[in-house]
Deep mutational scan, measured.
Amino acid sequence: KEMRNAYWEIALLPNLNNQQKRAFIRSLYDDPSQSANLLAEAKKLNDAQA
């Protein structure tokens, strides 16, 4: 469930391009235990690109 939530949050971040989203989501599938960390990194990048 945590992975699914992280997937959708990443997919809906407005300032990431599709390539960036795909990279984060690929990492999510590679290591679901890192969901919270990956989401935090994606949000950080999203904010930096705002």
Rank of each mutant, 00 (worst) to 15 (best):
N46L: 01
Q20R: 02
Y7F: 11
S27R: 14
K43D: 02
S35M: 09
L38P: 01
A40N: 09
A48C: 05
R22V: 09
M3W: 14
A36K: 14
L13D: 01
A36I: 09
Q49N: 09
K44Y: 07
P32S: 04
A40I: 12
W8P: 01
R26V: 05
D31S: 11
E2M: 06
I25V: 05
L16E: 00
L28M: 08
L12R: 15
A23H: 10
S35V: 09
N15K: 05
A42K: 00
A11I: 14
Q49M: 09
N18K: 12
R4N: 08
L39K: 04
D31V: 07
I25Q: 10
N5I: 13
A42T: 01
D31N: 14
F24R: 01
Q19D: 11
S35D: 03
A6W: 15
F24A: 02
L45D: 02
A11T: 15
K44W: 11
D31A: 09
A36Y: 14
K43W: 12
N18R: 09
I10E: 00
S27W: 14
L28R: 00
I25E: 02
D30M: 15
L16V: 02
Y7G: 09
I10N: 00
Q34A: 06
F24E: 00
R4Q: 11
Y29T: 09
L38F: 05
A48S: 13
A48P: 02
D47Q: 12
K1G: 07
P14R: 12
E41H: 12
N5C: 12
N46A: 04
R4H: 14
A23W: 15
N5D: 10
S35G: 08
P32M: 06
S35H: 10
S33I: 04
L39P: 01
I10D: 00
N17G: 06
E9A: 15
A48Y: 11
L12A: 12
A40C: 05
S33E: 06
N18C: 12
D47N: 10
F24G: 00
K21P: 00
A42Q: 00
Y29R: 11
A50Q: 08
D31K: 13
D47V: 11
N5F: 14
Q20Y: 02
A11N: 15
L13T: 01
K1W: 03
L38R: 04
A50L: 09
L45E: 03
E9I: 15
Y7H: 08
D30F: 13
L12C: 10
Q34C: 06
E9D: 04
I10A: 00
A6K: 08
N5R: 15
E9Q: 15
N17V: 03
A36D: 08
A6D: 03
E2G: 07
N18S: 14
N46Q: 02
N37H: 09
I10M: 03
D47E: 11
A6Q: 05
K44T: 07
S35R: 09
E2Y: 02
D31Y: 12
L12D: 06
Q19P: 06
A6N: 05
A50D: 09
Q20K: 02
L38I: 13
L13K: 02
S33H: 07
N15L: 04
K21W: 02
I25D: 01
D31C: 12
Y29F: 13
K21Q: 02
D47P: 01
M3A: 08
D31I: 07
N37E: 10
A48W: 13
W8M: 13
N5S: 15
K21V: 03
L28V: 06
K43A: 04
R26M: 14
D30V: 13
Y7C: 07
R26Y: 13
Q34K: 09
I10Q: 00
F24I: 03
Q20D: 02
N17Y: 07
R26F: 14
Y29L: 09
P32A: 04
L28Y: 03
Q34N: 07
W8K: 15
P32V: 04
A36C: 07
K44P: 00
L45F: 04
D47I: 13
K43V: 08
A48T: 11
L39D: 00
Q49H: 05
Q19Y: 15
L39F: 04
A23Y: 15
N46E: 01
N17C: 05
S27P: 02
L38K: 04
E9Y: 15
E2L: 07
L16N: 00
A50V: 14
L28C: 03
E41R: 15
N37I: 14
R22I: 10
L12I: 08
Y7L: 11
E9S: 14
Y7D: 02
E9R: 15
N37M: 13
D30Q: 15
W8D: 06
N18G: 10
A23N: 07
Y7R: 14
L39Q: 03
A40W: 12
N18M: 08
I10Y: 01
S27E: 06
Q34T: 07
K44V: 10
N17S: 12
L13N: 01
K21E: 01
L16F: 01
K43T: 04
F24H: 01
L12T: 12
L38C: 03
A6C: 04
R22N: 10
K21G: 00
I10P: 00
A6S: 06
N5W: 15
L39C: 04
N18D: 06
S27L: 13
S33Y: 06
Q20N: 02
L13W: 03
A36N: 06
A40P: 01
N15Q: 04
M3Q: 11
P32L: 04
F24L: 04
L28Q: 01
Y29G: 04
L39W: 04
I25P: 00
P14Y: 05
F24K: 01
I10R: 00
L39A: 06
Q20H: 02
D47L: 14
S33V: 05
R22W: 15
I10S: 00
S33T: 08
I25A: 04
L16K: 00
Q49W: 08
A6H: 06
M3S: 08
R4C: 13
E2C: 13
S27Q: 09
W8T: 08
Q20T: 04
R26N: 05
I10L: 09
R22Y: 15
P32C: 03
L12S: 12
K1R: 05
A23V: 06
N46Y: 01
L13S: 04
Q20S: 02
A42G: 01
D47T: 09
P32Y: 07
D30S: 14
R4Y: 15
P14N: 06
K43I: 07
N5G: 12
K21D: 00
S27T: 07
A42M: 01
N37R: 14
F24C: 02
S27H: 09
L38E: 01
Q34P: 01
R4L: 14
K1D: 14
Y7E: 15
I25K: 03
N37T: 07
F24W: 02
L38H: 03
R22M: 14
R22S: 08
L16H: 00
N5K: 15
N5Y: 14
Q19S: 11
Q49D: 03
L39R: 08
L28D: 00
Y7N: 02
A40F: 11
M3T: 12
P32R: 04
S35Y: 14
A36V: 10
Y7K: 10
E41I: 12
W8I: 12
Q19K: 10
L38W: 08
R22D: 05
P14S: 08
